[in-house]
Design a protein around this nucleic acid. Structure first.
Lengths: 187, 187
DNA sequence: AGGTACATTTGATATATATCAAATAACGTT
DNA sequence: AACGTTATTTGATATATATCAAATGTACCT
């Protein structure tokens, strides 16, 4: 839980009272490699934090797996539309390595945000960070070639190639595995 | 200013004290048709609100105009990366009809968010709304064809076709004008 | 170690959209 | 109304990536 506390403080510091109330709202899950931490719930209204390991977050769209995110290294992640709109995303969390994952429920987060100004500010900063990432990703999908997106990923998280199967990376980058394979062999 | 007050309240209500402080931080611009309200500043760190008229928000990318947003009908808009990252976006606001536009500076908004819990909550809700839109748009760009994106726009804001030149709509949809022309003629 | 399932690569072809180029239409100005 | 300018349409071709199909490579299981 120390890493979670630290990650929160890095985004926006909380008073000790807020921090205690907030941290106690987080639940913890532990999973071995290749395990389904969350499986097609109706609505996935949690914000997650991965303390250790690697997890793939995906859903089915027309019977195809869409990798929405690959989480590792003390990252927060969530299914944005599901979390905020309360619409079903059928989110699935699948561990790629033995992993420790935390999650806080939408209702708990909102209740605490109403109660504490600094928790509200934390939430705002988390959403803002998510928005900036969303914009960068949109720009990347709209204007960059598959090659450029792959290069960007390599530069930004080089370890991902060693730890995650190519097929997941392809879906995450928004290309087919065949295309990614060709990009990689052209190097 | 009444429409702005109303739009704010619809997102998240403010106490009368917060509302007074907040509204007085907004500036107002008035412009005839085909006028440049904002021209390539270094950083565009305002959130805008269009009270009346239509405005196009765009920037240059490799000497090409990219229409980031077409604002009308009492909508808020902003250059997300520029506003939150404080990086230059060279944003240009160009009116397509005579327009009344309001704007609040990043610094003022942040100062008031620190001061009033309900302003912080308003900001969080605005960012959240923006994030949801960003996700919908990304999904649309990644998985829908140009035809589907055009249909979606028609359904969502049918008036836009009458009021905005095709070339701007094309750029907003992320296609060339030739492609949009063909889509339209195939109907 | 051998076999089976799965992951990755390689090849041939199809498709949506961009690009380049030209023709036509609409629009504003005097 | 006629002119030049700008917007839109139409046509021919190029390109990135998807799709379908098969071959090769790798890893897990008893």
């Amino acid at each position: 839980m120390e890493l979670l506390r630290h990650a929160i403080t890095a985004i926006s510091p909380l008073s000790s009272e807020s921090m205690n109330a907030y941290l106690s709202a987080w639940k913890h899950w532990s999973a071995p490699k290749d395990h389904f931490l969350l499986r097609e719930q109706a609505v996935s209204d949690y914000i997650y934090f991965i303390e250790k390991g690697v997890a793939r977050i995906f859903y089915y769209k027309n019977d195809k797996e869409i990798t929405e995110w690959i989480a590792m290294d003390e990252q927060f992640f969530l299914s944005i539309t599901s979390f905020f709109n309360r619409t079903p995303s059928h989110l699935i969390i699948h561990t790629i390595e033995p992993s420790e994952v935390y999650g806080i429920h939408h209702n708990d987060f909102m209740r605490l945000a109403d109660q504490y100004h600094d928790v509200e500010k934390l939430l705002r900063k988390m959403v803002t960070g998510s928005l900036i990432l969303s914009q960068i990703r949109m720009d990347s999908i709209q204007f960059e070639t598959a090659q450029q997106r792959y290069d960007r990923l390599l530069k930004h998280s080089p370890q991902i190639i060693q730890r995650v199967p190519v097929s997941y990376i392809a879906s995450f980058l928004g290309v087919t595995l065949e295309t990614l394979s060709r990009i990689r062999s052209a190097k």
